[in-house]
């Protein structure tokens, strides 16, 4: 029995995924099993250890604020499933 309880519907909504009830049960059970394994991390002595987000040092990268060639509007829209008036089209947001 897993010590974890995931509100799978809440997580799915945060992730913008729609799950059927069967899928929700299935994924929740699998994730519980994975999270049980992740409890191995809780056994490590991590007091005073600095977190690593990149293996090698990462520096801020800056460049002069000058216009450079980029995508044309046409290129940017070339893969859009729906576009209208040279813009991306989405479902109506404001009534």
């Amino acid at each position: 029995m897993s010590a974890h309880s995931i509100d799978i519907h809440r997580v799915a909504k945060l992730a913008r995924l729609e799950l059927s009830d069967d899928e929700a049960t299935h994924y929740a059970a699998q994730l519980h099993r994975v999270l049980d394994h992740m409890d191995t991390l809780a056994k490590l002595d991590l007091s005073g250890v600095e977190p690593t987000s990149h293996a090698l040092p990462v520096y801020d990268v800056v460049r002069p604020d000058e216009a450079r060639p980029g995508f044309s509007q046409q290129q940017a829209l070339s893969n859009a499933p729906k576009s209208v008036l040279d813009q991306f089209q989405i479902p109506k947001v404001i009534e």
């Binding site: 992740m38 991390l41 809780a42 991590l46 250890v49 600095e50 977190p51 690593t52």
Partner: peptide, 14 residues
């Protein structure tokens, strides 16, 4: 509980 712990564990592994 998870993300920060994992980032610290990554330090130990490195």
């Amino acid at each position: 509980a998870y993300y920060l712990q994992a980032q610290k564990a990554r330090t130990l592994i490195r």
